[in-house]
Design a protein around this nucleic acid. Structure first.
Length: 651
DNA sequence: TGCGACACATAGCC
DNA sequence: CGGCTATGTGTCGC
């Protein structure tokens, strides 16, 4: 089903909010939410400005779309000699945020890249029972080589000087476990599991859950031995358990990379996914020795049994340029940094507390005067550092929370989570939110600021319906307080019942991004043509339901999806115009109590791999001109000419 | 200055 | 619910 068809008319149709869409303040939204194909969301935020807990589901997000680099050598079905078509199906599921029109990752953090491949027009059983030969395009006399198996591998390279960049992978044990280079992954054709499935399956240890996901990720050829031809390719794969999806999790760029050019400009990197056919070397002299180094046509590998194998590339895709932020402290903090002081855990655990007050104060790190900071403790490596939370000086607590009472102080290093904030609402606790400047002002001019904002008091309960998604205004409006993408507008309106109502509506809403609206506006015809391949449409589940067959007994996809949506429901908006812009004069109506915003311009195709299937050739089409900066085309079709960027593999 | 190593914090998993 | 696990990132010291 096409996203486009689900578009509410108000958004798809016309230029309903042209001014709002252009609002430069939209760029300052702290969290940009994008609806993924499967109904889950990707929440993009700048880690300089917002710290989210390492295990938060908000750390999962769909990364940049891949574009075709090229298709290379040809594979023929051995009996019919028909050409086999291939389609790599990659996606990034963790580690890259869309910030300021660019895709940004962190050198220290993991990313996840998953990929499957498909053979359009060739069903799986036929594939498994068939034999395949690969023909080298650049050698007239090249023999047809029998394909042992198909495999994908990933590579990274600098976009500026074209050098290859090492990738490293960790196990879940990280420092305590081994490091290794992402392996070439033998694969059989399969659809790519949806983003939500990758999330759910990311750290599964429970055997029931492992079984639940087994058929999604693995094919066991020996479980149905009679069904498959022992001469089919399925029996030349190296293992009984064959992966259907390559999951490269916990991947990082080599720690030695320089993320900036000598000029201090950001370097750009790209991640590549290469599908290849793996063969044995032909008997006698290897015809590849010439190719390997000079033309980089194929790579020699060593099989598990020690024999030589060759990886013959068939197709390659790559991301748009990626910015990698290094370890510089500036990449972890800024004057705009949003941190949170919350006693949520206290409020949540201290059921006996008579206080309903749970302040959440946003302030920059710099808002804590050094004199108020806990005294520095010089520690040796041998002694554990003390907990920053448990040893907060009470004097600071009383200062920061003056007039609030028994709330525990949290340092600005504390992680903010949307879940935290939402939980506070759910528990009907109060909260007050501040921008950094506001926080400072509050401490320094407490009474004065209270007078400036007579409607808001830290003792008052703030109704969730007063929450709006707004850009951080940093004091431009005294009645707006910002937390993440949330802004509280000072008002006395309060109606707890509305919350449940809104939540329900939020879960039903078919959210669209303004991005989609804008792209539709600019390129209505191109966008209405589905960018998806027929194969993608036919292999993808028709609805956001789990494709996993035996899922009883486990939390359903829908349930977990609801959790996920629930946790970010405050970011999910309808098409009301007031949700698209910062409007300090906005007056709440009963109709629209929870503001919702999708200000970032990200088109649907930003998250769809950029290729089209056409005349037995894959071509990168010059689509999405308004956002072409995201993915400079590696291939351009102009008239009958076909221009292609030089790739890892030259032909 | 940047990196390896260790440490802390915190949500998810079981 | 409590303990364990995984992972973003703070920090030390070279």
């Amino acid at each position: 089903m096409s996203h486009i068809q689900e578009l509410p008319r108000e958004v798809a149709g016309e230029t309903r909010h042209p001014l709002q869409i252009e609002d430069p303040l939209a760029d300052q939204q702290i969290i940009q939410t994008h609806l993924n194909d499967d109904g889950s969301t990707s929440n993009y935020f700048d880690k300089r400005k917002l710290k989210i807990a390492p295990r938060s589901t908000l750390q999962f997000k769909v990364g940049p779309p891949f574009e075709l680099v090229g298709s290379y050598n040809t594979v023929l079905e051995a009996d019919t000699l028909e050409t086999v078509l291939f389609q790599i199906n990659p996606r990034i599921d963790r580690g890259f945020d869309f910030i300021d029109d660019g895709w940004v990752g962190y050198k220290r953090n993991y990313f996840t890249l998953v990929s499957s491949f498909e053979t359009p027009g060739l069903d799986l059983d036929t594939f498994l029972n068939s034999s395949f030969k690969v023909q080298m395009h650049d050698r007239h006399n090249s023999p047809l080589l029998l394909v042992k198996y198909f495999a994908v591998k990933i590579r990274a390279r600098s976009d500026d000087d074209r050098t290859e960049i090492s990738l490293v992978q960790h196990t879940a044990k990280r420092d305590k476990g081994p490091q290794f280079t992402p392996a070439t992954c033998p694969l059989i054709p399969s659809a790519l599991p949806q983003h939500q499935i990758i999330r759910e399956a990311s750290n599964v240890r429970n055997s029931v859950k492992m079984r639940k996901y087994d058929s999604t990720f693995f094919f066991h050829r020996d479980e149905d031995r009679e069904k498959y031809n022992v001469h089919g390719i399925v029996y030349s794969y190296p293992d009984e358990c064959i992966q259907k999806v390559a999951r490269y999790e916990r991947v990082q760029f080599a720690s030695s990379i320089n993320v900036k050019k000598p000029s201090q400009q950001n370097k750009h990197f790209r991640l590549h996914v290469v599908l290849g056919a793996v063969t044995n070397p032909p008997s006698g002299s290897s015809p590849y020795c010439n190719y390997d180094d000079a033309l980089n046509v194929c790579d020699e590998m060593t099989a598990a049994d020690g024999s030589r194998e060759y990886f013959i590339p068939l197709q390659e895709m790559k991301t748009p340029p990626l910015i990698i932020r290094g370890r510089s402290p500036s990449n972890y903090t800024s004057s705009q940094k949003v941190a949170v002081r919350t006693s949520s855990s206290v409020a949540l655990s201290d059921k006996n507390s008579t206080s309903s007050i749970s302040p959440v104060i946003i302030s920059p790190r710099s808002s804590i005067p050094p004199s108020l900071s806990p005294p520095e403790q010089k520690t040796n490596r041998s002694s554990k550092r003390r907990s920053k939370v448990s040893e907060n000086p009470p004097s600071l607590s009383s200062l920061v929370n003056a007039g609030v009472g028994q709330n525990e102080y949290r340092t600005s290093k504390r992680v903010e989570t949307i879940e935290h904030i939402e939980r506070l609402y759910k528990e009907k606790t109060s909260l007050s939110l501040r921008t950094s400047e506001e926080s400072n002002r509050c401490r320094n001019e407490d009474k004065a600021s209270d007078m400036k904002r007579p409607k808001i008091s830290r003792q008052d309960s703030i109704d969730p319906k007063e929450i709006e998604l707004k850009p951080p205004t940093c004091g431009s409006d005294e009645n707006i307080y910002v937390v993440g993408s949330l802004a509280l507008t000072a008002t006395f309106q309060s109606d707890q019942n509305d919350l449940k109502l809104k939540r329900r509506r939020v879960n039903k809403v078919e959210a669209r991004t303004i991005a989609d609206a804008e792209i539709l506006k600019k390129e209505p015809k191109k966008c209405l043509l589905s960018p998806k391949l027929p194969a993608q449409s036919s292999t993808a589940p028709p609805s956001p339901r789990s494709p996993i067959e035996d899922s009883q007994g486990e939390e359903s996809f829908g349930d977990s999806l609801n959790h996920d949506l629930h946790s970010i429901s405050l970011s999910i908006l309808d098409e009301t115009s007031s949700n698209y812009r910062h409007d300090p004069n906005y007056i709440h109506s009963n109709h629209e109590n929870i503001a919702r915003s999708f200000p970032r311009v990200i088109g649907e195709t930003s998250f769809t791999n950029l290729y089209v299937y056409k005349h037995d050739k894959f071509r990168m089409k010059d689509r999405l001109p308004s956002r072409e900066i995201l993915s400079l085309p590696s291939q351009v079709v102009e008239g009958d000419e076909f221009y292609q960027e030089i790739s890892f593999y030259r032909h």
